[in-house]
């Protein structure tokens, strides 16, 4: 398995990173449970490769790679790759994509007044939306909600035919 992953990584990454980096990443990918890699994508690979130069690989790079591919969601306690974890806009709290979607589903249904909008800021604690932050926050939130919940309904599919 290690040789297979090593060869694949050598072929798909352009420009190819140092052999040591590929060795470490391939090694970690073999070690961590496959459930953690369910949502693994190329962004994860790119980000961990670009996190340091080819010539200055830190001593704890394997630990970093391991952590990068095994972030724990504080809500469901599942382990996921870095790109699957979603960061809140007004704080640094992160949870997995499925949990953040659930949070937005519930928070959106509970919107009734200006105060209730604060629940949309974070799953952990509701931050006040100030005049300074509201513009950027709602731009961010609008993009996220569009991305998470936009889908063609079956009626629209039929209309396109």
């Amino acid at each position: 398995m290690y040789r297979l992953i090593y060869n694949e990584l050598s072929l798909i990454i352009d420009p190819p990173p140092s052999e040591l980096k590929i060795e470490i990443i391939a090694n970690v990918l073999c070690e961590i449970p496959s459930e953690n890699l369910e949502h693994f994508n190329m962004t994860d690979l790119r980000d961990i490769i670009q996190s340091c130069g080819n010539m200055d690989i830190p001593d704890d790079y394997d630990e970093r790679v391991k952590k990068f591919f095994s972030r724990e969601c504080p809500i469901c306690f599942g382990s996921y790759t870095n790109s699957y974890m979603q960061e809140m806009f007004l704080c640094t709290h992160k949870c997995c994509l499925e949990c953040v979607k659930n949070h937005y589903r519930n928070a959106v249904a509970e919107i009734s007044d200006l105060e209730s909008l604060n629940k949309l800021t974070c799953f952990e604690e509701a931050h006040p939306i100030t005049e300074d932050t509201k513009m950027n926050f709602f731009t961010f939130l609008g993009t996220k909600v569009d991305k998470y919940f936009f889908s063609f309904s079956s009626n629209e599919i039929i209309r396109f035919r």
Binding site: Y104, V108, I111, L114, S116, L117, V145, F149, S151
Partner: peptide, 14 residues
């Protein structure tokens, strides 16, 4: 999609 619609509707009302 209904979550998205509800978001826009509730946000407008609030």
């Amino acid at each position: 999609r209904r979550v998205l619609d509800l978001y826009h509707e509730n946000l407008y009302m609030a």
